[in-house]
């Protein structure tokens, strides 16, 4: 049984010239960073690009990592910044175009094969509403919800990643859930 090395140890190996070490970090965190990017951006392609950019940025700035924070917090912070930057760019390019694309993507999600077509359609509709509601949240609230719901990070991990006090993370999450609740209710009424 091999010993499990921590992320920090792997980064140290990468800094000392081990070419394979950073690949290990990518393999450990790729899915979670992708989930975070997907939750924030809402598009698979954008999430993939943001994930690549996150790891590339981490690789380039590896020497700037001082070990004061955990590797996971460091990666999440880079990923959140990448997502915010991409969202601003997309907003400038065309807000409506992006929304249309997201709508189109929403229709392409594959529902489980066992479900009946009616149930699958209903499920697709519900998830589309959720996605729109999350996308409508302010960035500060959205990133907290995604980090909690998509990545299942603890409050402390989110606080470390975003460099926020613990109570601010809780209050933002509370506000986000309240807004989501109201938006979901309103959107469900509109659809009905």
């Amino acid at each position: 049984m091999g010993t499990v090395t921590s992320d920090e140890q792997v980064v140290e190996r990468a800094l000392s010239g081990d070419a394979e070490a950073f690949g290990e970090i990518v393999r450990r965190w790729e899915r979670r960073i992708f989930a975070l990017a997907y939750g924030m951006l809402g598009r698979e392609e954008d999430a993939r690009d943001a994930t690549q950019e996150t790891f590339l940025s981490a690789f380039r700035n590896l020497r700037g990592f001082r070990g004061e924070a955990k590797v996971s917090s460091w990666l999440h912070r880079i990923a959140v910044n990448q997502c915010i930057t991409r969202q601003r760019r997309a907003k400038v390019r065309s807000e409506t175009a992006l929304e249309d694309e997201q709508e189109a993507d929403g229709a392409s999600y594959s529902a489980p094969a066992m479900e009946s077509p009616a149930r699958a359609a209903e499920s697709r509709e519900r998830t589309a509403i959720v996605r729109r509601a999350i996308n409508a949240l302010p960035a500060e609230l959205r990133q907290v919800v995604v980090m909690k719901e998509f990545e299942e990070l603890t409050f402390q991990e989110i606080a470390d990643a975003l460099d926020l006090p613990l109570s601010t993370v809780k209050s933002r999450l509370y506000t986000a859930l309240r807004q989501l609740q109201m938006r979901l209710k309103n959107m469900a009424h509109e659809v009905a």
Binding site: V26, A35, R126, T127, V130
Partner: peptide, 26 residues
């Protein structure tokens, strides 16, 4: 709300097979 968000997460991430690098050497 959490249940609805979880449903979206499962559906979205479940349909996405490959991660960003697709086992490429980073």
């Amino acid at each position: 709300v959490r249940e609805a968000v979880g449903e979206w997460r499962e559906q979205a991430l479940g349909s996405i097979a490959s991660p960003a690098f697709e086992n490429k050497d980073v």
